[in-house]
Nucleic acid binder design. Structure first.
Length: 418
DNA sequence: TCTGGGGTCCTAGGACCC
DNA sequence: TCTGGGGTCCTAGGACCC
């Protein structure tokens, strides 16, 4: 049997670890909160109960928030990454999960060489208890004959309190479960497919699973067929190991728009620097650097512009100086005067291991230079690890007061963390 | 009159996920 | 006033090869 574990309301649960007094009260996590902008990214049961939804712009629901004394917390992505690492490490250490594979920041899959429902339930209960004890994060879990069915089981575990957070979907229960599952809630069916399926009269997961394979292939391609097989209890999906990403993105929506190239460059150099640091942490090099810019698409009264461009480096690198230089070059190419920019980001692409480097043909005599850069990066990371993020930085990143460690906003004083 | 048949690689954009 | 940030994979079409 495939098993699946998923943290409950992950972002909110992470915040409640350090603010336990808020447990039992409505809490949401939003971005750009201190600017009264932003949207709801995550919410707990209590917040859902008063009518809030993921994706609500804060300014549209201020009344509900005030009337119900909802606590709104600013998002802390790094905290969630750290807690995620903690959870995954704890689970790995127990060696309880066969074929462990992390799927996202807050969920993972595994296998269980047993389909006895009683033993499976005990086993999942032990995992669930372990994670709660070690990290204070509640999880829900499911088991089924494929990844998709295991994830479906977790969906039932979350939506039906009677399961108490654990749902085992045996082969016999499969059809009944799928007949109760709306097709839009199936993993792999997004908004587009849902719309087409609705037009074709397909309402439940079972309706879909009962169609012929050729029909599915014709209308929904290979991915559709994979989902179809999985729903029928035939494993068809492989999940790539999460330990080495293929790209790293760092982007922000700004609290205030800007039309200044200098301001953009300062922000972007910070994003590049943060992305490069994360890349070095996972011991990768990037071969490409992408930059994108966009105006506020919600402001129809303003001129719109968005663009992106990718620069291929002559050799893969993890050197912040080279990456920042690439970003400067890209900004030079993409920037247009007289637009109000609202969003920008840097993507480091085609990541590869730093263990096997393809040398730059034209820099082959520059090994000393390479070594010096490498040591420079190590020194910068070491200092910042010891004295705090951005303790030392490149001049182009701006003065300390400019750093927006938290989601966006120019000129906001740096938050000091003890 | 009549203009092939087979490949590979790259990229942009779509669709999906959390 | 105010509308997220991060990823993956697939496919179609263009450019190129013989």
């Amino acid at each position: 049997m495939y098993i699946h574990l998923d943290c409950n309301n992950f972002f909110v649960s992470c915040e409640l670890v350090s603010r336990p007094e808020l447990k039992g009260t409505p809490v949401v996590v939003a971005n750009n909160n201190d600017n009264n902008g932003g949207i709801i990214l995550a919410l707990n049961q209590e917040a859902k109960a008063v009518g809030l939804k993921r994706g609500n712009p804060i300014f549209q629901v201020t009344k509900i928030i005030e009337q119900n004394k909802v606590t709104v917390i600013d998002v802390h992505h790094q905290l969630y990454r750290d807690i995620s690492h903690h959870i995954m490490d704890e689970v790995r250490e127990t060696e309880m999960v066969l074929d462990f594979v992390q799927y996202s920041v807050d969920e993972f899959f595994g296998m269980m060489p047993d389909d006895d429902p009683v033993r499976l339930r005990e086993y999942l209960q032990r995992l669930k208890d372990l994670i709660l004890r070690k990290t204070d994060i509640p999880v829900s879990c499911g088991a089924g004959l494929s990844y998709t069915l295991a994830k479906t089981a977790t969906w039932f575990a979350k939506h039906y309190p009677a399961y108490q957070g654990i749902c085992i979907m045996s082969g016999e229960q499969r059809e009944k479960a799928l007949s109760m599952l709306d097709i839009k809630d199936v993993w792999g069916i997004g908004r587009r497919s849902f719309k087409r399926l609705a037009e074709l009269g397909i309402q439940t997961a079972l309706d879909f699973a009962n169609r012929k394979e050729a029909w599915v292939k014709r209308l929904f391609g290979v991915n559709g067929v994979r989902t179809w097989k999985e729903l029928n209890g035939v494993p068809a999906i492989t999940i790539a190991s999460h330990d080495r990403q293929k790209s790293i993105m760092y982007s922000r929506t700004f609290a205030h728009m800007t039309s200044s190239k200098e301001v953009l460059m300062r922000e972007l150099s910070n994003y590049a620097s943060s992305a490069a640091r994360r890349m070095r942490e996972q011991q990768s090099l990037c071969q490409t650097v992408t930059l994108f810019l966009a105006t506020n698409r919600h402001r129809q009264d303003l001129a719109q512009y968005s663009a992106d461009e990718t620069l291929r480096l002559s050799a893969a690198t993890d050197d912040s100086t080279l990456i920042i230089k690439a970003v400067e070059k890209l900004l030079e190419s993409l920037f247009r005067e007289n637009y109000q920019y609202k969003q920008a980001g840097v993507i480091l692409g085609q990541l590869q291991s730093n263990k096997s480097v393809q040398l730059d043909l034209f820099a082959i005599n520059d090994l000393d230079e390479k070594e010096r850069h490498k040591r420079l990066m190590q020194a910068i990371d070491g200092i910042n690890k010891r004295f705090g993020k951005n303790h030392i930085h490149f001049a182009i990143q701006g003065s300390e007061a400019d750093f927006s460690d938290q989601p966006a906003g120019f000129m906001r004083p740096k938050k000091v963390e003890s």
